[in-house]
Design a protein around this nucleic acid. Structure first.
Length: 496
RNA sequence: GCUCCGAUAGUGUAGUCCGGCCAAUCAUAUUGCCCUCUCGAGGCAAUGACCUGGGUUCAAAUCCCGGUCGGAGCACCA
């Protein structure tokens, strides 16, 4: 009875559904299969988040395989390989092995040769347009019945580079009359004249298509569970034809829908972001307005917050909208404890800071470093002759305001008159509590947000905060210190 | 045109396989109250959903059929 309850509890510990047929395998083996054609955006984080979580759950094995077999249309970006591995690490996972498809071309050739020998593939010189028509009509092309010997010879000529791009392809012989046109005699290899950007692969001209390459690799690396997008739904069906020729067992496969992210104006697409960055409309992949991993990272969002949010989305085949607020909620839990508090008075146009001489004030304010953690002590915010308030916080004439950590003040003439430190003013009489900064001794700050840069001044103690630290500007929000300097300190705004 | 897939509150998700315990779970969001020297954290409460029409059944979110809506593939992209 007790054991029942306990095991139930454990089962409900994570929101991901069980992987299918896990018991049939010695070990759950999965792969991330990124295309290194650019750094990662937020949507790409779903793959390592979910697969990595499954890996931890089942004590499994995880491969990172770069599917970089298209040197032209989805040309690999040489920097992206490491950027992607970085992103995976930031999310808190580590692949057990990393391979690149472009290192394995000979392996694909070998399997193509074997497939040809088995009568499972044929070289085809039909123009793409013509074949498309034949396929639509369920009609075989004249090349389909070539004998394997001729096919083998022509394939070697493809490998040798005897054909130009578009002249010859190798097709897998499936079922030309299959009711699903997507599965009919698909292309396994084609010629690409553009050299691969990786030096090691620059000489190859005959490249496998994803369905072939990925199918071969999944088997050779012992993948037991494939998790990928619905755009590849028919891939499994196509690849099964190859698996059947080789008498291989196809892995378990799960397809999920697309993810949309709210809160961004910029479309979440590698090519779109790439264009905007190149055009200078975004300062980079880490511009706060960019829905990219590098951007969230720079804002101080923990990888774990992204993972939690992604895992919550589950693996349904429907398209889903990820609310950034969900990422923020997770992140708040992760960073609140470490985030020391500071005052930042924003001085931007339209939000002009107001300077007030203070009368009879104590020499300094001493708000807590962290309200829940008393052992962190208190801050020391000098007052000087005058202080700054944000426009929205300025009390009406004769009204009072509580300067946090300092005391109660009344707005008289053009000054703030100290009227005491009896907290009843706040708790009993409803005097608003606001943050403030000394007008003289302060730290200029540039806060970079999703809506543009905001300038302001922080209390002097903020000068001691190191780069990469997460702080909370009271009543403004959490931010990551990005750069400290004489002129100004740059911080990236995370969220409220 | 052909072939697949999906549809639970604003968002995501549980439940659907094996119909009843579901006037539907949890999280997030929003709002209100409490607490707090932050608009953060914490506490409490409220809001809000089974796409639609039939059928089977004592009983349907769950099974069956039709429809609607949405998505994906039919690339010498991944």
């Amino acid at each position: 009875m007790l054991a029942d309850i306990e095991s139930e509890d454990e089962g409900d510990d994570h929101p991901l559904p069980e992987l299918p047929n896990v018991e049939e395998y010695d070990q759950v083996r999965m792969r991330l299969a990124p295309n290194p054609n650019g750094p990662w955006h937020l949507g790409n984080a779903r793959m390592p988040s979910v697969i990595g979580t499954y890996k931890d759950l089942y004590d499994g094995w995880m491969l990172c395989r770069f599917d970089d077999t298209d040197p032209e249309t989805k040309r690999p970006d040489l920097d992206a390989y490491d950027q992607i591995l970085d992103a995976i690490e930031y999310l808190g996972f580590e692949p057990d092995e990393v391979i690149r498809a472009s290192d394995r071309v000979e392996t694909y050739y070998d399997h193509a040769r074997e497939l040809i020998e088995l009568g499972g593939a044929y070289t085809c010189s039909c123009p793409a347009e013509e074949f498309r028509q034949l396929k639509a009509d369920s009609e075989a092309c004249p090349h389909r019945d070539k004998d394997p010997k001729t096919v083998a010879e022509e394939f070697e000529r493809m490998v040798e580079g005897d054909y130009d791009s578009g002249e010859m392809v190798l097709r897998v012989k499936t079922d030309i009359e299959h009711k699903n046109p997507a599965l009919r005699d698909w292309v396994a290899f084609r010629i690409i004249d553009t050299p691969h950007p990786r030096e090691e692969a620059a000489e190859y001209r005959c490249w496998p298509m994803l369905d072939f390459q990925s199918g071969i690799d999944d088997h050779l690396t012992g993948i037991t569970h494939i998790i990928r997008g619905i755009d590849l739904q028919d891939s499994a069906k196509r690849q099964r034809f190859v698996y059947d020729y080789f008498d291989w067992e196809y892995p378990e496969v799960i397809h999920w829908g697309h993810v949309q992210i709210d809160a961004y104006d910029v479309k979440m697409s590698t090519s779109t972001i790439k264009e905007l960055v190149e055009a200078g409309d975004l300062s980079g992949w880490d511009d706060p307005r960019t829905p990219a991993i590098a951007s969230l990272r720079r804002r101080g969002i923990r990888g774990g917050a992204i993972v939690d949010a992604m895992v919550e989305l589950g693996t349904s085949t429907s398209n889903v909208d990820l609310a950034m607020s969900s990422v923020y909620a997770r992140n708040r839990e992760l960073i609140d404890e470490e985030a020391d508090r500071y005052f930042l008075v924003r001085t931007d146009d339209g939000n002009v800071a107001h300077e007030f001489p203070v009368i009879d004030a104590p020499g300094g304010g001493h708000p807590p470093v962290h309200p829940e953690l008393e052992d962190r002590g208190t801050r020391d915010v000098p007052v000087g002759d005058s202080i700054l308030l944000e426009a929205a916080d300025v009390p009406d004439r004769e009204d009072r305001v509580w300067l946090k950590g300092l005391g109660c003040f009344r707005h008289t003439r053009e000054a703030l008159q100290y009227v005491g430190d009896d907290i009843d003013a706040v708790s009993e009489e409803g005097v608003p509590v606001v943050h403030w900064a000394p007008a003289e001794e302060n730290v200029p700050v540039r806060l970079r947000t999703m809506d543009g840069d905001v300038t302001g001044v922080a209390e002097p103690g903020f000068a001691d905060v190191g780069v990469d630290e997460i702080v909370q500007f009271e009543r403004v929000g959490y931010a990551r210190v990005d750069e400290t300097g004489e002129e100004e300190t740059v911080a990236y705004f995370a969220h409220e």
